[in-house]
Design a protein around this nucleic acid. Sequence first.
DNA 1: TAGTCAATTAAGTACAACTTAAGTGAAGGC
DNA 2: GCCTTCACTTAAGTTGTACTTAATTGACTA
Lengths: 316, 316
Amino acid sequence: MPDRLPPLTALRAFDAAARHMSFAKAAEELHVTPAALSFQIKSLEEHLGTQVFRRLNRAVELTEAGRAMAPGMADGFQTLAAAWRAAERTLDNETLTVTAGPAFTAKWLAPRLYEFAQAHPEIELRFSATLKLVDLTRDGIDVAIRFGTGTDEGVYSYPLPADEWVCPVMTPEMAARFPTPDSLRDATLIFDDSIAFLKPPAGWDTWFRMMGIDFAPKAGPRFSQADHAVDAALAGVGVALGRRSVVIKDLDDGRLVAPFPNALDTGVRFRFLCNKGAEMRPQIVAFRDWILTEIEKTTHITDRMIRKPSSDFQAE
Amino acid sequence: MPDRLPPLTALRAFDAAARHMSFAKAAEELHVTPAALSFQIKSLEEHLGTQVFRRLNRAVELTEAGRAMAPGMADGFQTLAAAWRAAERTLDNETLTVTAGPAFTAKWLAPRLYEFAQAHPEIELRFSATLKLVDLTRDGIDVAIRFGTGTDEGVYSYPLPADEWVCPVMTPEMAARFPTPDSLRDATLIFDDSIAFLKPPAGWDTWFRMMGIDFAPKAGPRFSQADHAVDAALAGVGVALGRRSVVIKDLDDGRLVAPFPNALDTGVRFRFLCNKGAEMRPQIVAFRDWILTEIEKTTHITDRMIRKPSSDFQAE
DNA sequence: TAGTCAATTAAGTACAACTTAAGTGAAGGC
DNA sequence: GCCTTCACTTAAGTTGTACTTAATTGACTA
């Protein structure tokens, strides 16, 4: 199909020249002489039948035709370069780039990093803590840990065997002051917007409704990221409604306690995502198996929880 | 920056081979011999340091490295080809590709096409009736007529001087049967979901509220496209709440009438969009000027309307 | 007016990319 | 079991693109 394309080297020369708005700089980037670059542009212009650069005194500027193709050329070559890097990455079995949300990165991955490094000293882990991600290949990501229901088409998707419940968590000192669920009416409640925006929502309102307590708290510190809410609870500010993935490590270590075993199951799960065909790469297998092992280590905490779906306790 | 890229011809050979999953077919596409293509792939594999195709009996299949880069290569070359076509289009001052929504295309553009062709016989108009559009360059579009507030970054955007009001329209026969706004309680009302989904909504409820009539109609034929609702009204089915752009031609020609001059101004406008720098291309100038002239021709209809913002009549 | 900078042109060269032609190995028909 | 066919590979040789150096233009600048 792409038959009518002019010589690709000419396109690359144009791309570089358009990005730098200078033939000399473009020639430098491509490691050729300005003369060679001048020829390439000329050849491109002959193919197109019109000029793509207007030559000024000591500068160049794009013509309309040049402006029309410059963004697409830049985009196209970037895409090719990303694809090439993706191929190169498949040869590298010693690094693994993982992306996850800020909360999961801070509270689940980071505290366990040392253990992974010990188990797999040959693998260098890199992190990219962001929720925005459109394309694994394009962004140079090997593995993404994602929440909820994204579009999994074309990627390998493995749901992690861990239901993401939420339940009240606090420091042991705080737990002594609030012995019953009902006593939480008098506690400082910490709000985590990241769970309030779930569908169905699983916030304090829902939790109290499950407990049969007529209480709809409003006031209290609010955080947009789950890990910040938990950090506040760790600091003794109050009681947070903690998501399993975010609090499980602190519960395991005893820094936080969950005195009331009633938990709301949010119904969403984390999924382990990687490019199709990459799921058998050694470091990706190692990383997935390690995550599964780590989840397994904390099942004793989850098992004593009484979990009920948050969808059962929605205000009508 | 893109310095480490292997020879581009090798990448193009790989792209063709990966798309066809056959060296022979790829060679045919690129008009070279299979031998040449084989060399290109081999060269690519030497650059990468590993195979990208696994050679089977009488077929080839992608290796993991090949799978990793194939989608990106296909995407990248498509983008380059689109950019090149965009540059070629700037040379063509005899065709003009326009996209607009289905309703605007059917009820505004199409009935006036003959006039444009007469005024500009040298310009060949092409249409693409769709609401989905992400990239003018990529989709080969010169001009887009768009509704509401899209992201206009990087494109030339000209708001059309025509406020998009809605008011009840019907055939003249129907108008004789329903002489007052209040009598519309007994009429068959046609619902157009495309205006009901505006923010703020401008449906029958809102119109009756503006008229001070306590009536919230529910039953009646529903259409998802504005032009279908108007077609129903034209067929004598009932009374439609017609958008200016969709009904103005039929009002002008007398096929429809708007007996009640009270119109809801939706607050949104159509915008005329084209790539930056393309706004001075002759056929784009001609098209824009023609649209403005056509709008001017129907101002006498709009001027006798009593227009009030739909936002003033929202249920609280 | 000379000096500098950026792009162009001219002339020549080298190597990438292509050709034809022969070769390999496996599937499939008979 | 043998021969044909098909798809890719390899070898050897040719072509032409893409590059080089070196000289030229043309305009801003000191």
